[in-house]
Design a protein around this nucleic acid. Structure first.
Lengths: 178, 178
DNA sequence: TATACCCCTTACGTAAACGTCAACGCAAGC
DNA sequence: GCTTGCGTTGACGTTTACGTAAGGGGTATA
């Protein structure tokens, strides 16, 4: 068992939980490390690690980290960056490019070029994924043919489509534009 | 300097190079480790590593590895699998699923399910990529606006489109269907 | 006051995917 | 017969992205 994320007995919602009182919600709500961890299913260690590597810099309340809405958005980008295969240092570089709005025109020009490169790489990666999907679908077809001949009863029905749909619809609307 | 891939002086094309004589081309041509390494820009170490991990099993000529056309196709799948974020053990699992056509109907049914799961995961990953591309494009727009105001001369022209096209058109037509 | 949560830092451990020697063998060309 | 280029098998090193343990502290509830 890695880490306890569910609320144990005696859990103090008012202190640790996501407050439901509107005055603590927006526009400038902040998060404890644990809240973000629960929300994004990562460990505190990971967040501290990202901070170590310069991808996050939450404020402090005494010793404790205090994450802003913007930190949260950064974290979302970090995690998505990871999912699409960027290394942390690459992600850091990208985040830095977003940040330094004031590096001068030359800097902005270089940033633009790097962004374009990233985009092109991602497009190719998407083609890779499409190719992989095609391969796997061919494999499925083969298996289905095979099963249809030997044991048609084992052919699974089409998946419940709404679960698929739901997974697609939670499109994140995060942005770092100030 | 990592490793020398270009042909040095004294390079013996007849012995080491890709033969252009048709009788050695198809349908059952074979490859040395180096030929595959050059073709796919990987190191011999990597290929041996994949073999170690059970993803490849080339034939032998004495001590030397001899890769068949089918091994080459597997390698293509391995590399693409890596590009889309699969671990080697995941790739191995998938390749195994392709292989065991004779595991019985129950096995085939399980394989089918796993394939479907992989496909769904890839679809979500593609959505991630699309999201990342959108973010980066927004970043581009911001930078372009910024540059247009300060230094329009630094705005790079649209990239030469044919290089992009060429990169897209070398779609691999590999398959593992026997 | 105990314990049950939360937080912190420091530091060593780990899995994956190779890189990088070292040390050897075999064939070809000078 | 030496060098060049290819191949082989260990075996240890490296990077990334954390996991995990050790040790310490703050705050609320029983």
């Amino acid at each position: 068992m890695p880490i306890e994320y569910s609320r144990p007995q005696g859990y103090n919602e008012a202190r640790y939980g996501l407050s439901s009182r509107p005055e603590f919600r927006r526009p400038e709500r902040s998060f404890t490390i644990r809240q973000l961890c629960v929300e994004f299913s990562v460990t505190p260690r990971a967040l501290r690690f990202y901070e170590d590597k310069g991808l996050l810099f939450p404020a402090r309340d005494g010793m404790n980290r205090v994450y802003s809405v913007r930190d949260r958005a950064r974290l979302q980008l970090i995690l998505r960056g990871k999912r699409v295969g960027f290394s942390l240092s690459e992600i850091r570089e990208i985040l830095d490019l977003y940040d330094e709005t004031d590096g001068g025109a030359a800097q902005a020009s270089r940033s633009l070029k790097k962004f374009r490169e990233r985009i092109e790489a991602l497009r190719q990666q998407r083609d890779d994924i499409d190719g992989a999907i095609q391969n796997l679908e061919e494999g499925c077809l083969r298996l289905e043919r095979q099963l249809k001949e030997s044991r048609p009863d084992l052919l699974p029905k089409a998946e419940a489509y709404d679960s698929v749909l739901r997974a697609r619809l939670d499109g994140s609307t995060d942005t770092l534009v100030k």
